[in-house]
Design a protein around this nucleic acid. Structure first.
Length: 433
RNA sequence: GUGAAAGUAGCUCAGCUGGUUAGAGCACUGGAUUGUGGUUCCAGGGGUCGGGGGUUCAAAUCCCCUCUUUCACCCCA
């Protein structure tokens, strides 16, 4: 019986695995140089943890199950609730600010499509305990630090930034009721995809007052933070949020990533727990779905039974990123599959034992070494050496039996040199130290 | 979850107005090459044509169901 792979999952063959590791190693390296420490949690949690604060969207996409003790569990669709749980558990002993990152494997029971799978990896970084917008700037910088490192430029990607807090303050100040906010967020989020007429039509359904409607439509035209005040009169709280956004853009300019960043009032985000600054990263042509996104979730820790502590962070998934990088040609030269330092070949059966002895010695001293299982011609063995990307081949033959010498062949240049056996290993030892 | 299109070798695809043992390129294995590889040449393995059912003398080809993928909704990594 042939069993197919499960819908929306991927098999990682060695070349795929090499790429995945390259991607994830990059995430980790950049996280560390930005001052973040790695953490991880379990791949499943109590179902109710995700039902609590993530919002309906995520809950609908949960893979959930019951264990033998009747516990209702779910595979994690995101790691932020786990982060909140973990931080809360040790909050009194953790030095602030808490700057943590993780590369969790996540599962969501969505309908699979290009760039959207049922199992994927996500790079998350979070700063907990800093309410200053400086933390939001740092988080955005960190994401862009990585994206730039892999070769993406402002011509390729854009970070769209807004503030939920500001949007709420403005909407409230023009007379929108508190309970009307959520559905309105959803509509505003969709605006760019709907087209002007449809958007106005749907807005009319939600906001009956024509005056308010007009103000919202005007507000949508704001192309920069500075312009917002031109379209609507700002309340005191709205003004504070606008100032905060303005400061964020100044900071992004100071750290040199302003070229990537734009203000976009349409960015609201689906997860329910976002409170302040929110952002999403897209390819410039808007050809693919969002590469990543994030924002402030100042209430989450408290909602999970912890202290009132501000937090901000982002997530970037592996699948859209990979599609984008491939399209931009940035994966072409990446990722050598197999890196072998030495391939040990022998010219005659009589040298076989010596060959595996030397191969074992190479491995013990830290070099990656392989050899041919079958005793075949030297030609065949060198062919294998090439196929395995060996940097050098060691040929064991009469030179060894006559003069105790190895033939070292550089596979890139084809050049060969003779070196005395003990001298070779002495040099190898000193290199590894 | 809703709507639409596609599924032929490991990969990219040809064949499809139904008709002899289903093809190519790349990849893979072996040989040409008895002490020198990445090139070339030759040969070989590999497919119940996504799966199941139906129509027919005859199905990769037509019909139905199902699975998977892709696209659009939905939403976002």
């Amino acid at each position: 019986m042939k069993i197919p792979p499960v819908k929306g999952t991927r098999d990682f063959y060695p070349p795929d695995m090499a790429l995945r590791n390259w991607l994830i190693d990059g995430w980790k390296r950049v996280s560390v140089r930005n001052g973040f420490e790695e953490y991880d949690g379990p791949i499943f949690e109590y179902l109710k943890m995700f039902q609590l604060k993530s919002g309906d969207e995520i809950v609908e996409q949960l893979f959930s199950f019951e264990d033998r003790g009747g516990r209702k569990l779910a595979l994690r669709p995101e790691i932020t609730p786990t982060l909140a749980r973990m931080v809360n558990q040790q909050i009194n002993s953790l030095p602030r600010p808490i700057k943590w990152f993780s590369v969790p494997r996540l599962c969501r029971a969505e309908r699979p499509q290009r760039g959207r799978l049922r199992e994927f990896f996500q790079w998350n970084i979070d700063i907990i305990g800093v309410d200053d917008v400086l933390a939001d700037a740092e988080v955005i910088f960190c994401a862009l630090d990585y994206l730039q490192e892999v070769g993406l430029t402002p011509d390729d990607i854009v970070v769209k930034i807004s503030s939920r807090e500001m949007l709420a303050a403005i909407l409230l100040s023009i007379g929108i009721a508190e309970d009307e906010l959520e559905p309105l967020y959803a509509l505003l989020d969709k605006r760019s995809r709907l087209g002007e007429d449809t958007f106005e039509e749907m807005l009319t359904k939600q906001v009956s007052d024509e005056n308010r409607r007009k103000k919202i439509l005007e507000l949508m035209n704001a192309e920069s933070v500075e312009q917002i005040g031109d379209f609507v009169e700002l309340s005191e709280t709205a003004k504070e949020s606008v100032d905060e956004l303005q400061r964020l853009f100044e900071l992004l300019d100071v750290v040199g990533v302003a070229d990537f960043c734009v203000f976009d009032i349409g960015v609201v985000r689906g997860l329910a727990y976002y409170t302040g600054i929110v952002f999403e990263i897209y390819d410039k042509a808007s050809q693919f779905r969002a590469i990543g996104g994030g924002g402030r979730f100042d209430d989450l820790l408290k909602q999970f039974g912890g202290p009132d502590m501000p937090a901000t962070g982002f997530g970037i998934g592996d699948s859209v990123l990979e599609i984008l990088l491939r399209e931009k040609g940035l994966l072409d030269m990446v990722v050598p599959q197999k890196q072998l330092d030495y391939f040990v070949a022998f010219t005659d059966k009589q040298f076989f034992q010596k060959a595996i002895e030397i191969m074992a010695k190479l491995r013990r001293s830290g070099a990656a070494a392989n050899f041919a299982y079958k005793s075949t011609t030297l030609s065949k063995q060198l062919k294998q050496a090439s196929a395995q990307n060996a940097q050098k081949s060691i040929i064991i033959g009469r030179e060894l039996s006559d003069n105790n010498e190895l033939v070292i062949k550089d596979m890139a240049t084809g050049e060969q040199e003779l070196i005395e056996l003990n001298k070779f290993f002495a040099e190898l030892e000193s290199e590894s130290k």
